[in-house]
Write a protein that binds this DNA or RNA. Sequence first.
DNA 1: CGGTAATCGAGACGGTACGTCATGTCTTACA
DNA 2: TGTAAGACATGACGTACCGTCTCGATTACCG
Lengths: 213, 213, 213, 213
Amino acid sequence: MDTGRNATAGVAEAQRRGRPRSEKARVAILEAAAELLLARGLSEVSMDAVAERAGVSKATIYRWWPTKETLALDALYSEWAAAAPSPRATGSLRGDLLSLLRPWARLAGSRPYGRVIAALITEAQTDPAFAQVYQSRFVEPRREQARGIFRRAAERGEIPPDTDIEVAIDMVYGPLYHRLLHGHAPLSERFVRAVVDTALGGLTGHGRNVQEN
Amino acid sequence: MDTGRNATAGVAEAQRRGRPRSEKARVAILEAAAELLLARGLSEVSMDAVAERAGVSKATIYRWWPTKETLALDALYSEWAAAAPSPRATGSLRGDLLSLLRPWARLAGSRPYGRVIAALITEAQTDPAFAQVYQSRFVEPRREQARGIFRRAAERGEIPPDTDIEVAIDMVYGPLYHRLLHGHAPLSERFVRAVVDTALGGLTGHGRNVQEN
Amino acid sequence: MDTGRNATAGVAEAQRRGRPRSEKARVAILEAAAELLLARGLSEVSMDAVAERAGVSKATIYRWWPTKETLALDALYSEWAAAAPSPRATGSLRGDLLSLLRPWARLAGSRPYGRVIAALITEAQTDPAFAQVYQSRFVEPRREQARGIFRRAAERGEIPPDTDIEVAIDMVYGPLYHRLLHGHAPLSERFVRAVVDTALGGLTGHGRNVQEN
Amino acid sequence: MDTGRNATAGVAEAQRRGRPRSEKARVAILEAAAELLLARGLSEVSMDAVAERAGVSKATIYRWWPTKETLALDALYSEWAAAAPSPRATGSLRGDLLSLLRPWARLAGSRPYGRVIAALITEAQTDPAFAQVYQSRFVEPRREQARGIFRRAAERGEIPPDTDIEVAIDMVYGPLYHRLLHGHAPLSERFVRAVVDTALGGLTGHGRNVQEN
DNA sequence: CGGTAATCGAGACGGTACGTCATGTCTTACA
DNA sequence: TGTAAGACATGACGTACCGTCTCGATTACCG
C-alpha cells in the first residue's frame, strides 16, 4: 500500500492499460528503505542510496512516493504491520491494555525504530499533508483500538462512565513514546506494566491494582 | 552560553589575546536562529539563511557552534530559559506538579516549539554527542526538579516510599510531550490538570483526587 | 519514406502478414515533429512531446525511426521536398544557378529551418551513420543538380573546361549556408544574385557579369 | 576571460574581499572541457564529466559559466586564441587573404573543431543571448580583420570602390565553413587558394588571377 | 471463420544528466 | 585573533528525457 498515488486498485478491477507496476520493484524499494532507515536514520538515507540498493531507478521511486518521508512511512509500516499481532480481549482493562501495549513496546524496542519515528514526527510538524497521512496510518488505528478497550471497560464498570478516553489514551501511550523518543531509560516489559498499573491505580496507591500477571 | 567550544568559563579569566569575541554577533545569531527556527523548522533553515539574517559570516557561526543542531539548541534554550519561571513549593504534590507543568505547557503551546523540539530529539537519536548535550541541557534539569517534588511527597507520605520516581516522571511528562509532538489534541490547562489528577489517583477512580484547584 | 528500417522497397511486394503500418500515425508523427522542430529546435523537442502531440505512443515512433535525429531529418525532408520546385534549364550558367539557388534561399529563409539544419549538421559530425544518410538525402541531390549545371556550362564554353566543379559548388552554396547558419545578415534575393555574380565574375571586376536579370 | 559573470576586473583594481577565485580551477575546467569537447563533441560531454576530469565541483563550474555552451565557447576560444597568429599585411589583396585564411583553415582542420563549432552554431540558433556572445567573440573579430583587408584593397584600386564588403567576406569564409561543417571534402591548403582565386577572379576566367604563390 | 502475427495505445522501467541547494572548510583583507 | 566576504569540494535533491519493456487491444492475412 503506497502513501503516494492511487494504489488502491480493488481485486476485481479490470486490468489497466499500459505496463503494469512492477511488484518486484515495489518490494525491493520498501525493503531497501527499511534496512537503510533502521541502519542510518532518515536524514542519513538518500533517495540515491535507496535506488541503488533496491536496484531501481530514482524515477521509479518518485513515481510512487512523492517524498522521502512518505517512503519511510510506508517502509516502516510494512515492517510494523507484519510484526504486530492483533491484541485479544482478556476480559479486564488491565489485561487488554497489556496485550495492546506489550507487543508495541517489544517491537519498538527491538530495533532502532525510535529514530525513524522521531524523524516522521518531525516531518509531520512541518508538512500538514504528511501529518495527516501519518496520523491516519500510524496513530489513529492504535488509538481506535485503545478507545474500544476503554469503552468496554466503562461498560463493565471498571472505570467511571464519564472518563475522558482521549486523556486516558495519552496517559498510557504518552509515557511509552516518551521513553522511545528520549531514550533516557529502557522500554522494558516492567515499564509497560508500571505504566498501566499507575494509570489505572494512580501514584497515591489508594486505587492500586494488585493483580500480578 | 555555547554548546560548542570554550564556554568562556569564569569572569576573572585573563583577557585572551587577539580581537575579543563579538557579543553583538553572538546575540544576533541566536535571535536570527530562533526566529527562523520557529517560523520554518530546523530542516528548512539553512546556515546561510541564519548568517544572512544575522548580518554575520557563516564562518563566525561555525567557529562557535559545531553544527546546526547545537545552534538550534542554544537558540531555543535562550528563549525557553528566559520565559520559564522557577516553580515554587506549594506544600502538596498536586500543587507542586501543577506549578511545574503548567508554565511548561503554556510555553510549549505558545509558539511552534514542538517542531523544533521534535527536530532536536530526532537529531539526538542519531548523534550520541548531541544526545548527551540535549539531555543535560533540556531534559535533566526538569527531571531533577520533578525528582525533588516526588521525593518531598514521599517524605510527606503522599505517595508510597517505594514509588519508582523515574516512572512517575514519565507518567506526567510523557502525556504532555505526546500531545506536543503528535498534535492530535491541544496542550490545554485542562489537559495538564487531567494528567496530574489521573497520575495521582488513577483511572479506576478509587484513589481519585477530589481537590478542585 | 523512412530513414530507419524496411523502407518498403517495391510496390509489387506481397503484403506482409500482421497488422499493416498505420499511415495515419506515420503522417501525424512527421507533422508533429516538423511543427515542434521549427518552433523550438531539435534539442528542445523530446520524443515524449512528439508522441503526445501526434497522439501516438513512443514505441511506435521508435519502431520506425531509430533516433530523434533521423526523425527530424525525415520531418524536415517532407516539408522541404514538398516546397522545392525543380529548377529549369535557362540556357546560361547564371540563369541556371539563379533558378537553382533562388528557390532554395527563399525556402530556407521562410521559416526557422536554419535551426534544424544546424542541428542535423551537428549530429552528422558525431554520428557517421547519420552523416551518411544526411549527405545522401539532403546534400548530394542538390550538389548533383549543380554539377549538371556547371558541366553544361563548361560544354557551352562559359567556364574553362578544367574548372574544379566541386570548388565551384562550394563557392555558391558556401556563402548561402554561411548566412543561413550564422545569421549575421539576411538571405535575401539580392544576396543570392551577388553571390552568383561574384562567383562568376570575381571581385576584381575584370570578368564582372553585367547582365541585369 | 569568462562568458558568464563579471570577469573583467582590471589590473589595478583593489583586491576584492573574500576568497579570490581559484585560477587553478579556472584553467583546469577550461582544459578539461576542451579535451572532452574535441574528443566527444558537445552533446556527449556532461558537466559532471568536466567537473570530474578537472577535479572540481559542479557548483564551481556553474558559478562562472551559466550553461554548458558558454563553457564550450570559452574552452574553444582559449585553444583557438592561443594558436591563431595575427595575419600580416602583404601588400596585395590575394596575399592578405591567404595570410588570413590559411592559418584558420590549418587550425580548423587540425583537430575536430568542426564538431564543436557546429554545436555552438546550433545553440546560437535557439538562444539569442548566446548568439550575441558567439558573434562578438568568434565571428566579428575575424570579419573585422577581413573588412580591413578589403578596405585597403579598395584604396589600392584592386577591387572596385563600391564593392559590397560584407558579401565579399561571405564569399571567402562561406566556402571554408561549408567544408568544415559538411565535411564532404577536405579543408586543404589547395582549397583555400582555389577559394581566394575564384573569389577574386571569378569562375569565367576573364579576371583570373594568375599569381602562383 | 478461427488462428497467427505484426501493429498500436499506454505507460512503467533502468539509466543518465540536469541545474540547484546546503554543508562545512578555506582563503583573503580588514579590524 | 576575530570577522565579513565569498569561493570551494562534496553530495543529495527532484526533474526530465532517453530508449526499452510489457501489457491489452486492434487489424490485417491465411489456412
